[in-house]
Computed example of a mutant assay.
Amino acid sequence: MSSDDRQPTSGDDREQFRVTDEVLLDYEAMEAHELEHRRERAAGQWPSAFTLSSRLHEIREETIVLRRHATQESKVYSRLIDAMDRKIELLAEVLMVQAFGERHPFVSEISVGAGGMDFLAPTPEPVDGLLDIRMVFRSTGVGIRVFGVVRHCEPADNRRHRVGVEFIFAREHDRELLVHQVLQRQSQQLRERQ
Rank of each mutant, 00 (worst) to 15 (best):
G101P: 10
D12Y: 01
V23F: 04
R14P: 00
L190G: 01
E89I: 07
L178P: 01
M30P: 06
A114K: 04
G101R: 10
A32M: 06
L90Y: 12
R145V: 07
L25F: 06
S74P: 04
T123Y: 09
D118A: 13
H104E: 15
R41A: 12
M96G: 03
T9M: 02
G143H: 05
G11P: 00
R103I: 08
E172N: 11
F100E: 09
Q181H: 04
R175P: 00
I133D: 07
E61L: 11
L52F: 05
S187D: 05
R67F: 10
M96I: 03
R162H: 07
P47S: 12
T123E: 15
E166K: 11
E22D: 08
E62M: 15
C153E: 03
A156C: 01
E176S: 10
Y77G: 01
F119T: 01
R86D: 08
L177A: 07
H173K: 11
R145Q: 07
P105C: 02
G101L: 07
E73M: 08
M135V: 02
V65R: 14
R38Y: 13
I144R: 03
R193M: 07
T9V: 05
M96E: 00
L66Y: 12
R134V: 05
K75F: 06
E62S: 13
A32Q: 10
V97E: 15
D85M: 06
R160H: 14
R138N: 09
V65Y: 07
G101Y: 08
T71N: 04
Q7K: 15
P122K: 09
M96L: 03
M135Q: 13
L35A: 11
V107Y: 06
D132R: 10
V146Q: 13
V182W: 01
R134W: 07
V76E: 12
R39P: 00
G129Q: 01
D26Q: 11
Q181M: 04
H152M: 01
E89V: 05
A114L: 09
R191A: 13
M84A: 15
E176I: 05
A43L: 14
S53A: 07
L35I: 10
R103H: 14
E15D: 15
V179I: 14
V149L: 09
F50L: 11
R175Q: 12
P105I: 01
Q194M: 06
L95S: 13
Q189D: 14
R60K: 10
M135F: 15
V182E: 05
K75W: 06
D85Q: 12
V76W: 12
L80V: 11
N158S: 13
R138Q: 11
T71I: 08
Q181C: 02
D82L: 12
E176Y: 04
E31W: 06
H33M: 04
L90G: 09
G11N: 07
L131G: 04
I59W: 10
Y27M: 11
R14E: 14
F100H: 06
R134S: 13
E62W: 14
F147A: 07
S74C: 10
E93Y: 07
D5S: 11
Q45R: 15
R41D: 02
F50G: 00
D174Q: 09
L66Q: 15
S111G: 03
H180L: 03
L24R: 01
R14W: 00
R60E: 12
L190E: 10
V163N: 03
C153R: 04
E62P: 00
L95G: 14
R6E: 11
G129N: 01
P124F: 05
